[in-house]
């Protein structure tokens, strides 16, 4: 079955009798992409599931006020990113521990995670990514793994392209430092 254009789906969403099926179509179209965007940031599957559901709930509530000029995918990506940031901030507040403790704990947790199938190098890379501040982590993941262009990242994160390039540069430097010392 071919995927319909976002504009067509959004037009259906405005019709009360078609809104549920239109939203279902949106979920089907973007759930996998958004899942991986969130998963790379949060690593844990259960956390990702919670945040992905919250992302779509927020989208459902806000779709009536969605500005049709911007892309639906960019808008959903932005909601998911903000949800991730909120989740990580809450987690940081809840488990008030220092960075070193988090890193050592993270490596152990990831090794024993049934949904992690990486080798030693990937485990070290993921541990290194976890040492980054949230914004740098976001930029690194979007650029390194998704290979997203800076102009698209700029629209999603609401940050200038030059600032994003600087963030990516710092993130890479920090990861290199981590890998050297590990």
């Amino acid at each position: 079955m071919t995927e319909r254009d976002d504009k067509e789906i959004l037009k259906d969403f405005e019709n009360p009798s078609l809104s549920n099926s239109a939203f279902n179509e949106i979920v089907n179209k973007y759930k996998v992409k958004l899942y991986w965007h969130i998963r790379k940031l949060l690593v844990n599957h259960d956390d990702t599931d919670d945040v992905l559901q919250n992302t779509f709930i927020k989208a459902w509530k806000g779709l009536n006020t969605f500005q049709k000029e911007s892309k639906l995918y960019t808008w959903l990506y932005r909601i998911a990113t903000n949800e991730c940031i909120t989740f990580l901030q809450n987690k940081k507040k809840k488990y008030f521990v220092n960075v070193d403790e988090v890193n050592s704990e993270f490596s152990v947790q990831l090794e024993s995670d049934t949904y992690f199938d990486g080798d030693k190098a990937q485990l070290i890379l993921q541990s290194a990514i976890q040492t980054l501040p949230v914004k740098q982590k976001l930029v690194f993941n979007m650029r390194y793994f998704d290979e997203m262009p800076y102009d698209e990242m700029s629209k999603i994160l609401g940050t200038s392209e030059s600032a994003l390039k600087a963030s990516y540069h710092f993130a890479v430097k920090k990861i290199e430092e981590y890998l050297k010392h590990d």
Partner: peptide
């Protein structure tokens, strides 16, 4: 999406019932 080796896995059938749970 990754174009890199993805070390993460998803529980089997996770996306199948995602919409109904949502």
């Amino acid at each position: 999406l990754f174009n890199k080796n993805n070390p993460f896995k998803i529980p089997e059938g996770y996306f199948d019932d995602f919409n109904s749970r949502l």
